[in-house]
Design a protein around this nucleic acid. Structure first.
Lengths: 206, 206
DNA sequence: GCAATATGCTACGGTGGAGTAGCTTTGTCC
DNA sequence: GGACAAAGCTACTCCACCGTAGCATATTGC
């Protein structure tokens, strides 16, 4: 009978919860979902598996809580960036500014945004569904803003608000992915300058 | 001892391989990777599990062969669409035409393109890696074409070929996803008209 | 029709990881 | 210091699904 391991120090429930979530986040981001076994999370957190089960009823609960936490905080970051009104703003400067701030937020919290925008192997269906739901919320907001802007500049009818919203959200996600995966090569400034130039060109032709 | 099931008819090895791959494709697309157990594939194909193992050494082999088949055929579709030369072409008409043909190909083979562009839950790491590799090939081609086109129109330096290539590939994937998921609302013609209008505007400003 | 062969099926072994019962330790209060 | 409760640990059960050995059947050629 080998020596029994020393007990992990007791900490308040909320602190333990955070610790377990942080451990899971680290594993998701560095090794993917398949590596997030309850054993691995426990080890990463410096406790045993039943302690993890004392916080979350199941693996699915843990992963759901993790994504929920990250999405809540990402949404807060995003809402702090988006302007309340868009109609009186120059579209190219607005897009450039929002993209710059967005990519700054991404770089501030890479693990969080990794969970939200990166394609990932072994992603559980629940995690995937929650990502899609959050994306839909972002899209709705983007479509609202696009309607105001497109009307204000008198854009041609082919540039419908829903397609423009999808386009903008897809391009922001693309930029975030590239900034997360290859920050040396894809500096945020490059995307900001490119979007300013592209929209600027379109406006000059009106 | 219950009645032994009737044997599935013997078919040539190549036909059995195709049958098993088609069964797996159907399951991936309708129910996701997690539903692709060897038992489920066997049932979908109308044979028992050892028959599936007679074709593919393991589950991983099966999934890899499936994606490989779909990617080969998708690449063939894509290469048939892309023009050999781009410099003498009108960029907005070129983009519109290529996008139209691409979305037509997507609609011709929805299951194949579902495997290639849709975000999917439970995607095995190997499958995910193969998707990324194929995407990198497409990106390299797109960057090559972007270089020729941007030089020909004298685009501003902010619109760098690598960023434009990522943008175009991301937008094509976005359009494919929307056409696959909501074909009523997102008719290919809408994307084609939008890209023609957007690039057309930029060119008129030069 | 019979024999040989290739291919199909049943029943099974093995295992990684989800989840938990019961014992042990720690921290707090008196 | 002792009692008690909460929280931590060890050892274990369970099972879905991967993978396969050995038997059964279907097909073909003589």
């Amino acid at each position: 009978m080998s020596k029994r391991r020393a007990y992990a120090p007791r900490v308040p429930a909320e602190q333990r919860r955070t610790q377990v979530l942080d451990a899971a986040l680290h594993l998701v981001v560095t090794s993917g979902h398949q590596a997030v076994t309850m054993e691995a999370v426990a080890e990463q957190a410096g406790v045993t598996k039943p302690v993890v089960y004392g916080v979350f009823a199941s693996r699915a609960d843990l992963l759901q809580a993790l994504l929920h936490r990250e999405q809540e905080q990402a949404l807060a970051q995003l809402l702090a960036i988006l302007p309340a009104r868009v109609e009186e703003q120059d579209p190219s400067e607005l897009a450039a500014r929002v993209l710059a701030e967005f990519l700054h937020a991404v770089r501030q919290s890479p693990d969080r945004w990794h969970c939200i925008v990166m394609p990932m192997a072994d992603m559980p269906a629940q995690f995937h569904a929650a990502r899609e739901r959050a994306r839909a919320v972002t899209l709705a907001r983007a479509e609202q803003m696009a309607q105001g802007l497109l009307r204000a500049v008198g854009a041609p009818p082919e540039l419908a608000a829903d397609i423009v919203a999808h386009t903008v959200v897809s391009l922001f996600e693309m930029a975030a992915r590239l900034v997360l995966t290859d920050p040396e090569h894809f500096a945020p400034e490059r995307f900001v300058a490119a979007i300013r130039a592209a929209i600027g060109l379109s406006l000059r032709a009106r």
